[in-house]
Design a protein around this nucleic acid. Sequence first.
DNA 1: CATAAATGTCTTGCGGTGCAAGGTAATAGC
DNA 2: GCTATTACCTTGCACCGCAAGACATTTATG
Lengths: 132, 132
Amino acid sequence: MTKELSASHDQRRSQLLRGVLDLCLLALIGERPRYGYEFVEALTESGLDLVSEGSIYPLLARMERAGLVDSYRAPSAAGGAPRKYYRLTEAGAAELATGRATWSTFTVAVSRTLDDEQHSHHEQHGHHEQHE
Amino acid sequence: MTKELSASHDQRRSQLLRGVLDLCLLALIGERPRYGYEFVEALTESGLDLVSEGSIYPLLARMERAGLVDSYRAPSAAGGAPRKYYRLTEAGAAELATGRATWSTFTVAVSRTLDDEQHSHHEQHGHHEQHE
DNA sequence: CATAAATGTCTTGCGGTGCAAGGTAATAGC
DNA sequence: GCTATTACCTTGCACCGCAAGACATTTATG
């Protein structure tokens, strides 16, 4: 019961990832071929923690099915199961470019809405001391 | 048929709104009391088009149930059904503050990932050799 | 009163997707 | 063999934006 409201922070992060997680993977793949397990670490380093394999692998599969990436296998350098590396296709590169633009436009619009204090509420130079 | 691929743009917008649409409403309500129908117009003005009533009303109901906002009825100035105005509660103001911080942190992390050309810029000047 | 238009509110059902949990497989060391 | 590590993949749930449409209230027209 107390949890229902305070779960909101991690909960929000999950929701925020929607619509942009695929773009992050695309961007990371654009740098160089990457394998699934690597994304979890890479995204954590970038400050996007809590992105788990349960999100990554299905998404990678979706993107491959959509023709945005393709893949090849290579033995692991660390010993263990062989890695499946993903590369950008042309369609993937195009989607990344489009997505970057969409993301940029979107964040500007949201940030403006969130920081709306300027246009409708200009503060007087005096300090407003009165409380109700 | 030509629509199938370009549907991804609107599709992405939908997903991007998750996790931040409630914050936008909270911010708008923070300025002054607002009624549901008004949000559609306000968000469109802010550049967030395509946000429809089917998103707004259920969300408003959820937020009221969560105690983030409360509401009162007032007759419409334009003639028609009475409006239901929403106001911020203390919990709502707190959620807004937390959410703004989360949003800010999140966008920085994503933007860094999307524009990652700098940090791995240490790539040697030689070009990659294609295998196969 | 009946009808319609305008203004708003609210509900239903669908679809996409992040994620916890759990399973599979390959390699290395004991 | 057995266990640990690395890595991949699947299932099922839960959440939420949204199109579509039902419903309520006021004003206007006749």
